[in-house]
Amino acid sequence: MSIQRKKFLSDNMIWLVLIALVIIMSIANRNFATVSNLTTLLTGEAIKGIMAFGVAFAILTKGIDLSLGAVAALVGAVSGALVQPTDFAMRTLSSGVRLPAPAAILIGLLLGAAIGGCIGAIIAYTEIPAFIATLGAQLICRAAAKMFSNRPVSKLSDDYRFLGSGRVLGIPMIVIVFIIIAVISWFILVHTRFGKSLYAIGANSQAARVAGINVNANLIKVYVWCSLMAALGGVLLAGRSGSSDPSTSGLNYELDAIAAATVGGTSHTGGVCSVTGVIAGILILGVINNGLVLMGVDDNMTNILKGIIIIGSVVLDMRKNIKKV
């Protein structure tokens, strides 16, 4: 077998797995490969996918972000509370006006960015592991969300809900947002100095520093990006269901996002990440989630399969990326 073909297979393994899964699912259930079901699949994975693009940046720099779900819950609750009807008896904020959706969403995203800035600064300047910093942030943000409201923030205005549940030309907005984020992520990673710096930091942060890259500033930006994606996810989650429950919203989403980024070949040893890979990772997990439910497979079995795929993908990734010793 020629080296080119081997390389082709090794580089495109993930797509082959995806295609194989789609074929299996299509054969097993004729309702799988329908437009409406694939739309459902994409809608369901879009939010995790957006968060996956966030956390992929962190993983690229050898970091991680465990606070995504909690940040989403906090932002969902806060921005949601700004668009509740003023005459609603269960309104979270007893006073205050009902903001137009763009303003509320913008405030939500800014809140996310601010949280990310804090997390990033802590990681960059104290040099504590990102795992610890974001674990702490997760607890804090989840608690803050619950303190902000001890019940679901509901009756969200229709304009606020447009991003999460509206459709344009029959395509759910949530999917459109996902695609836009994918394109932005691709652009950042491939075509900006910031993106290039992330690869350098992930590959060898000492060397990146010597090469004149401001490692700390870039790390802060990474976590701002992560939390921004989480915040966007929070707005979409709240928009999708019309209500944001601080205690359950976004629960464990960070794990799904990390799984998708990981399956997509983002290397936890740093320096390796591709947007197409992350997309493939999201789709693989989505196909499994959706397809097995259609087949009536027990959830536990679904999770076992997901576990196997996550571990398997990292094993393959290690073989490919780690220098053979």
């Binding site: 350098a200 060397a207 390796v272």
Partner: peptide
């Protein structure tokens, strides 16, 4: 190796 090359990245990078 420690603070020179970015091992897994390309010659171009």
């Amino acid at each position: 190796r420690g603070n020179g090359i970015l091992g897994i990245l390309s010659v171009k990078f």
